[in-house]
Design a protein around this nucleic acid. Sequence first.
DNA 1: CTGGATCCGGCAGGATACTG
DNA 2: CAGTATCCTGCCGGATCCAG
Lengths: 96, 96
Amino acid sequence: MEVLNGKWKILIIGTLMAGGKKRFMELLREVDGIAAKMLSKELQELEMHKLISRTVCNTKPITVEYEITEYGKKLEKILLELTNWGMEHREMILKG
Amino acid sequence: MEVLNGKWKILIIGTLMAGGKKRFMELLREVDGIAAKMLSKELQELEMHKLISRTVCNTKPITVEYEITEYGKKLEKILLELTNWGMEHREMILKG
DNA sequence: CTGGATCCGGCAGGATACTG
DNA sequence: CAGTATCCTGCCGGATCCAG
């Protein structure tokens, strides 16, 4: 699918699926190797597609929380199957 | 998944899933807009991952047939779900 | 802390021409 | 018909600096 385009989207979704609600910095730490600009950009794209929600918290240093939407969770099942397939695939290829 | 990387792989797999065994030229015609170089390259990558099989036929002008492997068919179910999700998604986005 | 603006290099991918 | 070789280009994504 072209909605999942970009080097990090699946990783981001995976991280949010595993850990639930996350702040920007948490994602920056947990999605290993990603730059702030890329995280910001891909989060925006995911939000445009209604896969995640963005919530601004009025704390002193402003914080933002991202979360998978109910709609986005429909992808969860499919993505999990895809991941499982990928695991089996790795083994199958490594053996020959 | 990173195995499905490349602009055309999903379209190629989809075409082979829908039409069964196909020759190079048939794919070149049916996968709209693809160049021969790209088709060749992505077919090789798919073959390395055992998702499709390549069979050379000893006809006068040599022909080659490509087909989804039994193993590759395991992706069919997942890919169909992903496609269905994409259809619903399109509608959902267009409405707002 | 969140994220926008800018600059830049590398590579995916397109067009074309050629071979067995 | 099937595939390779070569060249060229856009844009994806990384680094860095700046702002609210």
